[in-house]
Simulated scan of single mutants.
Amino acid sequence: MSYQNQPQQPPQQPPPGWGQPPMQPPGWGQPPMPPRKNNAGKIVGFSCLGIVGAFVLLAILGSLVSSGGDTTAKSGGKTAVASEKPTKAAEKAEKAEKEEAAEKPKKADPKPKPEPAAAGPVKVSAKKATFTPGVLHDGGKYTSVSITIANNGDKPINVNPLYFSITDTNGTKHTAELAKDERQIDTVDLAPGENITGVVTGEGEFTAKYVTYTDGLFGDPVRGNVS
């Protein structure tokens, strides 16, 4: 079949809009916006780190303060103990002294000593002598002392063997024994400036320490040490 004789028809026009890309809704073909970065997490993280750091710092400061206080307390305690030691030592020493003083026996008041021979008008000198039996010696043991008595006053004094006594080294007092020694001192009155020597005898064997003379019953005693 031949188409050469058929008349040519003009080319047909495509309908309007054909061949054009279809219309897209506004914003459809645009790439999606990237999500915004959220900084809230970072802020929270930094806040937590700050809080933790603050707690750590406070803990360190607290430990330093505590250690300093302990050191001060210890040093203060040591100072207090050191200051208390001398006080306690002084108290112990004082207590020991009081106890020692309480244990010591109280010293007895010394007996009044007779007036020295040179202090008054009468002077008594004495020395050891050998016992020489007299007419009234009964065979017993006796001790004799040779005595010299001088009147240095301005009044006469009476001398009598009974006015003398002998005290031995043990403190025992021996009264004079009459007529036991043939050299017994005489009974006389001594005028001022006069003196007399004789023997005074005591019963028993002893070591004479001093001789005491008393003028009469109310006179003052005068002592002479035995040499």
Rank of each mutant, 00 (worst) to 15 (best):
A89F: 06
A89L: 06
A89G: 03
A90M: 10
A90P: 11
E91Q: 05
A93R: 14
A93M: 09
E94P: 01
E94C: 01
E94W: 06
E94Y: 06
E94N: 07
K98T: 04
K98L: 05
K98G: 00
E99K: 10
E99W: 12
E100C: 03
A101W: 07
A101D: 05
E103K: 12
E103F: 09
E103S: 09
K104N: 04
P105W: 05
P105R: 01
K106S: 12
K106L: 15
K107M: 09
K107H: 08
K107S: 08
A108L: 02
A108M: 01
A108Y: 02
P110E: 09
P112D: 01
K113P: 14
P114N: 11
E115A: 11
P116C: 01
P116W: 02
P116A: 02
P116E: 03
P116T: 00
A117H: 00
A118Y: 12
G120N: 00
P121W: 04
V122R: 06
V122E: 07
K123H: 13
K123G: 09
V124W: 06
V124H: 04
S125R: 08
A126K: 08
K128A: 04
T130D: 15
T130W: 15
T130C: 15
T130S: 15
F131N: 06
T132H: 11
T132K: 12
P133F: 03
P133Q: 00
V135T: 07
V135P: 02
V135H: 00
L136H: 00
L136Q: 03
H137Y: 14
H137V: 07
D138L: 14
D138G: 14
G139P: 09
G139S: 06
G140C: 11
K141W: 12
Y142E: 04
T143Q: 00
S144L: 02
V145S: 06
S146T: 08
I147P: 14
T148D: 13
